[in-house]
Amino acid sequence: MRFVFTIAALLLSMPILAHSPLFDCYDNGDGTATCEGAFSDGSAAVGVGIRIELASGRILMQGEMDDASSYSFEMPDEEYSVYFEAGEGHEIVLFGDDIY
């Protein structure tokens, strides 16, 4: 039973693992930023988790990519990073300073 479950889990994870996650954010020029995520086969990342974390480790915001595979947020004044949670080993981190 455990074997069957393991195979099923592997099969379920294959479509995502087979394609690299892609992620970027840009400054909207009004104090907000918009992030977009996708996979290298062109599929959208709708529902994929995203979190904004301060340098101190405190999680400032947490959410999911919307139907347009994007997530907008107000940029904090202090040092922060954006995490695109595309699965274990597939998390992408973008530093706040690299968002322009």
């Binding site: 690299s20 892609l22 992620f23 970027d24 977009e36 996708a38 996979f39 290298s40 086969d41 062109g42």
Partner: peptide
């Protein structure tokens, strides 16, 4: 009539 297909970020759409 000329096409150039550009891509941003590697996500094909």
């Amino acid at each position: 009539i000329t096409k150039v297909i550009l891509n941003v970020g590697g996500a094909p759409t």
